[in-house]
């Protein structure tokens, strides 16, 4: 990781091709322990629902070391959500709407989140790619990541959370293309990547047992970069 940051810094100083931008990706995480836990709650007559997709937003730097080698460093945050909601009584909600002259309808849905589960991960990734083609630049590669995960469950009267740090890995194929647009006088580059992310971290606090937060799964990422 330190080596990658050093190389990217050197590339900026030497005037090599260097890009920085924001990315957004969606993935289908394994979350097997969360799914087992959700099944257990459902067995207990709680209609607990888990999201299917994890959303990740991040800041990414890309740089070319040579004609064939591209490096990437990124910091991103992933989020996975589960919830048990109760609907308001429709009659109460209608009366509230009438008495507040409709103002109540302006503020969100009538659902009342009773229990919420939030899994989050902060990912620091480093990756190297081999360029297969130019314009658009197609490259394949991957690299390790440091992952800091947290899991929080909120109930009406309690909140419990646990954290852990672990290692991950990701591999993918990416396409980068000059957009032709400029922002602040700098050329904009569009990028997309599809691949697989391994990111399974076992919580290591008291009472967490073998429970792991597993963000592993296939992902699709898009990003907009400034060519510096």
């Amino acid at each position: 990781m330190t080596v990658l940051v050093s190389i990217l810094s050197l590339m900026v100083l030497q005037g090599s091709s260097f890009r920085i931008g924001f990315t957004f990706d969606g993935s289908y995480p394994a979350m097997s322990d969360e799914r087992d836990y959700s099944d257990l709650l459902n067995e207990g007559d709680l209609d607990f629902k888990l999201d299917d997709v994890t959303w990740t937003g991040g800041l990414e730097a890309l740089g070319d070391v040579s004609e064939k080698l591209r490096l990437r460093g990124s910091v991103s945050v992933s989020n996975f959500h589960g919830t048990y909601e109760e609907n308001y009584n429709p009659l109460s909600y209608a009366l509230i709407g009438i008495f507040t002259c409709g103002l109540a309808f302006l503020f969100g849905s009538p659902d009342n989140e009773v229990i919420s589960l939030e899994d989050e991960s902060l990912n620091i990734e480093a990756a190297a790619y081999y360029k297969l083609a130019e314009s658009p630049a197609v490259s394949i590669g991957g690299g390790p990541s440091i992952v800091m995960v947290s899991r929080t469950i909120d109930t009406p009267e309690t909140e419990s959370s646990a954290k852990a740090t672990g290692m991950g890995f990701n591999a993918g194929i990416r396409i980068d293309q000059e957009s032709g647009f400029r922002f602040l006088g700098l050329p904009l580059v569009l990028g997309a990547e599809a691949g697989y992310r391994y990111c399974n971290v076992k919580l290591d606090e008291e009472y967490t047992g073998d429970f792991s937060v597993d963000f592993s799964g296939p992902y699709i990422k898009v990003g907009t970069y400034l060519n510096l």
């Binding site: 207990g44 007559d45 709680l46 209609d47 109760e86 308001y88 009584n89 109460s92 009366l95 509230i96 008495f99 507040t100 109540a104 009773v114 009406p156």
Partner: peptide, 14 residues
């Protein structure tokens, strides 16, 4: 009245 109604709404969680 609405706030009272809301607070009296079902809180019989499963």
């Amino acid at each position: 009245f609405s706030l009272l109604l809301t607070s009296c709404d079902s809180t019989s969680y499963p």
